[in-house]
């Protein structure tokens, strides 16, 4: 098991219980979608994994290492194994595309080397290879804020891959993108995971997208897991468990139709 979460609980200082004894196992190479209404704790869950948010209780094991017990130096080394992709891209806007990509290597180089932008040649080569893979090699010296949303998200993906991770933590990768770009980005993430044998936890609002691209779906509601199974098994009852009562018949089919429409447009 690559990642195993046991009894993970997070209570914010305000008293809100965001996660309530969550148990979750992710094997190596598995792409998993995490769905649930706003405020269900999706974001908190993946941030507790790399400890951008400190969990209140429970354990997170990555490759047999207990992340929750690590000191700050060891935590930084562990974070290198977990690439993160953000909703609003979270690129450092005033740095160039290449600098943003290279920032994925920060955990591997010393402070002064990074301050003077002296990275090993093979890191820069790898950066160019990955940028080329996502079709952005010609943009390397552009500033990040000159890019479109889809391009920025691809730079965000490359930054995460530069860390040479085992696991991708993906937070609403498509929330700021149009439907077509959303599909392209999701496809890219899934393809890259398959190429490199990465596991991924993808937080996503769009149920149809989740079903289309992830083999396994986990549904979170009010900090508890209420659904866990293959994408095909998610039916109206499952969605009602996750989101509450609503007519779901359209939602489940919508995915294929929209995708066809997108293909036609393209």
């Amino acid at each position: 098991m690559l990642l195993s979460i046991e009894g993970l609980t997070k209570r914010y200082p305000t008293g809100d219980l965001a996660l309530d004894k969550v148990d979750l196992q992710v094997p190596a190479g598995q792409v998993m979608a995490l769905i649930g209404p706003s405020g269900a704790g999706k974001s908190t869950l993946i941030r507790c994994v790399n400890r951008l948010v400190e969990p209140s209780a429970g354990r997170v094991m990555l490759d047999g290492v207990n992340l929750t017990a690590l000191g700050s130096g060891a935590l930084r080394r562990a974070r290198r194994r977990m690439g993160m992709i953000f909703q609003e891209y979270a690129l450092v806007e005033r740095l160039t595309v290449m600098e943003n990509v290279l920032s994925g290597r920060l955990g591997y180089v010393g402070f002064w080397a990074s301050w003077f932008r002296r990275f090993p040649r093979k890191d820069v080569e790898e950066a160019f290879r990955l940028l080329d893979r996502v079709g952005l090699a010609h943009m390397a010296d552009k500033r990040a804020d000159a890019l479109s949303g889809g391009q920025r998200q691809r730079v965000g993906i490359v930054r995460a891959l530069m860390q040479d991770p085992k696991l991708l933590l993906v937070d609403e990768p498509t929330a700021s993108l149009d439907p077509k770009t959303s599909r392209q980005i999701m496809r890219l993430i899934v393809e890259l995971c398959a190429e490199r044998g990465l596991a991924a936890i993808i937080n996503i609002h769009d149920v149809a997208l989740a079903q289309q691209f992830a083999r396994r779906i986990v549904g979170l509601r009010a900090g508890r897991i209420v659904f866990d199974g293959p994408a095909e098994d998610l039916r109206a009852e499952g969605l009602t468990d996750i989101y509450g009562e609503e007519d779901w018949s359209q939602t489940i089919r919508k995915a294929e139709e929209e995708d066809e429409a997108a293909e036609v447009l393209a």
């Binding site: 930084r76 690439g83 993160m84 979270a90 920032s103 920060l106 955990g107 402070f111 990074s114 933590l169």
Partner: peptide, 22 residues
């Protein structure tokens, strides 16, 4: 913007590196 800081922290950067890069 705090999310840019978060993103750089998530790469495993040390505190001085987060300061310098984000």
């Amino acid at each position: 913007d705090a999310t840019q800081v978060e993103a750089v922290t998530a790469t495993g950067a040390s505190r001085p590196q987060v300061l310098g890069w984000a």
